[in-house]
């Protein structure tokens, strides 16, 4: 039996004006507004990039050199090549490094103190600001070789990508069912054989999606490139000279006073955004399919 202390509990009728109901409705509206507020900048950024980028888009932007200040036309062919080059160098450095480290963490030392420590350091590394990584690469490569270069840029991007690759590769390897390994080991395979012939092939699709996402992000990174790869107005001839990249070009031309350069900055942004969008959607689609 209800005691009088709980008099309010006796009315079961709904009243839309009670403070509790009102509070609930207000809070619900607030969360809806928050969600809308979060989506506005996304829509705004994407639509501006799409509209401004597409309106100045010509196929020749992919094949021509940047215009001299004040001139119209031109493109960013050299920067596109430069981006592929630096990202390629970064991949060569970071993918083997990261995947091997992940094999150790997921296959050989899983759930140990050592693995936990390295995972911790990996997470900390992924939090190091990209501009600091740029400064490190500047000291490590640019000062040592005496020149800005695609190698220096690639090195900086490699450090940047490393934690992502280690993490995605570790997760992919860990998600390979234990049965696979036990079956292989039960057949007398060594750990090397088990890993290389059974586990790695099973994890490869997931690793590739993770690596693709990391690459797409790296292609858009500007801060580590600024004073490592630097920039150039010419086509790449060697990996040991200053190299133009898309991200750097967008930065330079965004802050340039000339209309034709600003237009190229928008087109360049469109290319960078398309790159991340396509890889994100693609990788999501691959993950969904499996």
């Amino acid at each position: 039996m209800a005691s009088p202390e709980f008099a309010t509990a006796l009315n079961m009728k709904r009243s839309s004006m009670s403070p509790r109901t009102l509070f609930s409705s207000v809070m619900t509206v607030i969360t809806f507004v928050c969600a809308a507020l979060a989506l506005i900048p996304l829509v705004a950024v994407l639509s501006y990039v799409l509209i401004n980028g597409a309106s100045s888009f010509r196929l020749s932007v992919f094949t021509q050199l940047p215009p001299a200040p004040g001139l119209t036309g031109g493109g960013f062919g050299n920067a596109l090549v430069g981006t592929f080059l630096t990202v390629g160098i970064a991949s060569l450095l970071s993918i083997p490094f990261g995947v091997l480290a992940a094999i150790f963490l997921a296959e050989f030392y899983r759930d140990t103190k050592l693995a936990e420590t390295i995972n911790f350091l990996t997470n900390v590394l992924s939090g190091v600001p990209s501009i600091v990584i740029g400064a490190f690469a500047y000291a490590f490569v640019v000062l040592a070789t005496g020149t800005f270069s695609a190698v220096a840029g690639g090195f900086a991007l490699a450090v940047l990508m490393l934690p992502t690759i280690v993490r995605t590769a570790t997760e992919s390897l860990e998600s390979v069912p234990r049965d696979f390994r036990q079956a292989a080991i039960g057949l007398g395979a060594t750990r090397f054989q088990t890993t290389v012939q059974i586990v790695l092939p099973a994890a490869i699709p997931a690793i590739i999606t993770g690596v693709m996402l990391a690459l797409a992000r790296a292609a858009g990174e500007t801060a580590p490139i600024l004073f490592t790869a630097s920039t150039s107005r010419y086509w790449v001839r060697s990996v040991w000279e200053p190299t133009a990249t898309m991200a750097r070009l967008v930065f330079d031309f965004a802050t340039a006073p000339y209309k034709s350069q600003q237009e190229l900055a928008w087109v360049g942004s469109l290319v960078l955004v398309a790159l991340v969008l396509v890889t994100s959607i693609l990788s999501r689609w691959i993950v969904r399919k499996r």
Binding site: A9, M12, K13, R14, R20
Partner: peptide, 12 residues
């Protein structure tokens, strides 16, 4: 019934 508030029901 439509006028019943389920939250109040659960208190009883």
């Amino acid at each position: 019934a439509p006028e019943i508030d389920p939250v109040e029901v659960r208190r009883q």
